[in-house]
Amino acid sequence: MNLYNDYKDRADFLTVYIREAHPLDEWQMKSNVDQGVCYAQPHSTEQRVAIANDFIQRFHFPLPFAVDDMHDIADHAYSAWPERIYIIDEQGKIVYRGGIGPFNYHPAEARAWLEKRFNVTPTPTTSAANGHPTNAAN
Protein backbone atom coordinates (compact mmCIF):
# COMPACT_ATOMS: atom_id res chain seq x y z
CA MET A 1 0.00 0.00 0.00
CA ASN A 2 2.95 2.29 0.51
CA LEU A 3 3.87 2.01 -3.15
CA TYR A 4 0.32 2.96 -4.09
CA ASN A 5 0.27 5.91 -1.71
CA ASP A 6 3.63 7.14 -2.96
CA TYR A 7 2.87 6.87 -6.69
CA LYS A 8 -0.89 7.00 -7.15
CA ASP A 9 -0.58 10.56 -8.46
CA ARG A 10 1.84 9.46 -11.16
CA ALA A 11 0.83 5.91 -12.06
CA ASP A 12 -2.31 3.82 -12.25
CA PHE A 13 -2.69 0.70 -10.16
CA LEU A 14 -4.83 -2.39 -10.57
CA THR A 15 -4.94 -5.36 -8.26
CA VAL A 16 -6.17 -8.60 -9.79
CA TYR A 17 -7.52 -11.19 -7.40
CA ILE A 18 -6.59 -14.64 -8.66
CA ARG A 19 -6.91 -18.25 -7.55
CA GLU A 20 -6.33 -18.69 -3.82
CA ALA A 21 -2.81 -19.73 -2.84
CA HIS A 22 -3.55 -21.45 0.47
CA PRO A 23 -7.22 -22.40 0.72
CA LEU A 24 -8.30 -24.72 3.50
CA ASP A 25 -9.12 -27.51 1.06
CA GLU A 26 -5.63 -27.43 -0.48
CA TRP A 27 -2.41 -26.29 1.14
CA GLN A 28 -3.58 -24.29 4.11
CA MET A 29 -0.93 -22.44 6.07
CA LYS A 30 -0.88 -22.25 9.86
CA SER A 31 -0.44 -18.48 9.62
CA ASN A 32 -3.77 -18.21 7.83
CA VAL A 33 -5.47 -20.22 10.57
CA ASP A 34 -3.90 -17.98 13.20
CA GLN A 35 -5.18 -14.90 11.37
CA GLY A 36 -8.62 -16.34 10.77
CA VAL A 37 -8.19 -16.27 7.00
CA CYS A 38 -9.78 -19.58 6.11
CA TYR A 39 -11.45 -20.00 2.74
CA ALA A 40 -12.02 -22.96 0.49
CA GLN A 41 -10.88 -22.61 -3.10
CA PRO A 42 -13.75 -20.82 -4.87
CA HIS A 43 -15.66 -22.91 -7.38
CA SER A 44 -17.93 -20.17 -8.66
CA THR A 45 -17.62 -16.55 -9.66
CA GLU A 46 -19.87 -15.58 -6.76
CA GLN A 47 -17.58 -17.28 -4.25
CA ARG A 48 -14.48 -15.69 -5.74
CA VAL A 49 -16.01 -12.22 -5.76
CA ALA A 50 -17.19 -12.68 -2.16
CA ILE A 51 -13.67 -13.48 -0.95
CA ALA A 52 -12.26 -10.51 -2.86
CA ASN A 53 -14.78 -8.26 -1.16
CA ASP A 54 -13.94 -9.75 2.26
CA PHE A 55 -10.31 -8.94 1.63
CA ILE A 56 -11.02 -5.36 0.67
CA GLN A 57 -13.23 -4.77 3.68
CA ARG A 58 -10.79 -6.30 6.15
CA PHE A 59 -7.82 -4.27 5.00
CA HIS A 60 -9.72 -1.21 3.77
CA PHE A 61 -7.77 -1.88 0.60
CA PRO A 62 -7.68 1.29 -1.47
CA LEU A 63 -6.23 0.07 -4.76
CA PRO A 64 -8.50 -0.39 -7.77
CA PHE A 65 -9.49 -4.03 -7.82
CA ALA A 66 -10.51 -6.65 -10.37
CA VAL A 67 -11.22 -10.36 -10.21
CA ASP A 68 -9.91 -13.06 -12.51
CA ASP A 69 -12.59 -15.25 -14.01
CA MET A 70 -13.12 -18.89 -13.11
CA HIS A 71 -11.05 -20.01 -16.10
CA ASP A 72 -8.07 -18.19 -14.54
CA ILE A 73 -7.45 -16.41 -17.82
CA ALA A 74 -5.44 -13.54 -16.34
CA ASP A 75 -3.48 -15.89 -14.09
CA HIS A 76 -2.51 -18.08 -17.03
CA ALA A 77 -1.75 -15.17 -19.36
CA TYR A 78 0.59 -13.55 -16.84
CA SER A 79 1.78 -16.69 -15.01
CA ALA A 80 0.73 -14.81 -11.94
CA TRP A 81 0.05 -17.44 -9.26
CA PRO A 82 0.55 -17.02 -6.36
CA GLU A 83 1.58 -13.37 -6.56
CA ARG A 84 3.38 -11.20 -9.06
CA ILE A 85 3.80 -7.60 -10.18
CA TYR A 86 4.03 -6.19 -13.69
CA ILE A 87 4.26 -2.61 -14.90
CA ILE A 88 2.73 -1.77 -18.27
CA ASP A 89 3.55 1.47 -20.03
CA GLU A 90 1.23 3.85 -21.85
CA GLN A 91 1.71 1.93 -25.12
CA GLY A 92 0.61 -1.34 -23.55
CA LYS A 93 4.10 -2.82 -23.38
CA ILE A 94 5.45 -4.69 -20.40
CA VAL A 95 8.24 -2.58 -18.91
CA TYR A 96 8.68 -4.43 -15.62
CA ARG A 97 8.12 -8.12 -15.01
CA GLY A 98 8.45 -9.17 -11.41
CA GLY A 99 9.38 -12.60 -10.19
CA ILE A 100 7.00 -15.23 -8.91
CA GLY A 101 6.06 -14.99 -5.26
CA PRO A 102 6.68 -15.51 -2.55
CA PHE A 103 10.44 -15.96 -2.95
CA ASN A 104 10.94 -13.68 -5.94
CA TYR A 105 8.20 -11.20 -5.20
CA HIS A 106 9.95 -7.88 -4.67
CA PRO A 107 7.78 -4.74 -4.69
CA ALA A 108 10.98 -2.75 -4.13
CA GLU A 109 11.90 -3.53 -7.74
CA ALA A 110 8.66 -1.99 -8.96
CA ARG A 111 9.33 0.99 -6.74
CA ALA A 112 12.79 1.34 -8.25
CA TRP A 113 11.30 1.32 -11.76
CA LEU A 114 8.84 4.06 -10.81
CA GLU A 115 11.56 6.11 -9.15
CA LYS A 116 13.68 5.89 -12.28
CA ARG A 117 10.78 6.65 -14.60
CA PHE A 118 9.67 9.72 -12.70
CA ASN A 119 13.09 10.67 -11.46
CA VAL A 120 11.69 11.31 -8.02
CA THR A 121 11.75 9.55 -4.68
CA PRO A 122 8.62 10.33 -2.70
CA THR A 123 8.86 10.47 1.05
CA PRO A 124 7.95 6.89 1.96
CA THR A 125 4.63 6.44 3.66
CA THR A 126 3.89 3.76 6.21
CA SER A 127 0.99 1.40 6.46
CA ALA A 128 -0.28 -1.02 9.05
CA ALA A 129 -1.93 -3.20 6.46
CA ASN A 130 -0.25 -6.55 6.12
CA GLY A 131 -1.36 -9.38 3.91
CA HIS A 132 -1.73 -10.53 0.36
CA PRO A 133 -1.72 -8.71 -1.91
CA THR A 134 -1.18 -5.69 0.23
CA ASN A 135 2.47 -6.62 0.25
CA ALA A 136 2.52 -5.03 -3.13
CA ALA A 137 2.27 -1.93 -1.39
CA ASN A 138 5.62 -2.06 0.26
Partner: peptide, 13 residues
Amino acid sequence: GQRPLVLVFGSYT
Protein backbone atom coordinates in the same frame (compact mmCIF):
# COMPACT_ATOMS: atom_id res chain seq x y z
CA GLY B 1 -2.88 4.56 -21.96
CA GLN B 2 -2.73 7.56 -19.68
CA ARG B 3 -0.02 6.60 -17.20
CA PRO B 4 2.07 3.52 -16.38
CA LEU B 5 -0.09 0.77 -14.94
CA VAL B 6 1.17 -1.19 -11.93
CA LEU B 7 -0.52 -4.57 -12.18
CA VAL B 8 -0.56 -6.56 -8.94
CA PHE B 9 -1.70 -10.17 -8.82
CA GLY B 10 -2.49 -11.95 -5.58
CA SER B 11 -5.03 -13.68 -3.40
CA TYR B 12 -6.26 -13.45 0.18
CA THR B 13 -4.56 -16.52 1.62
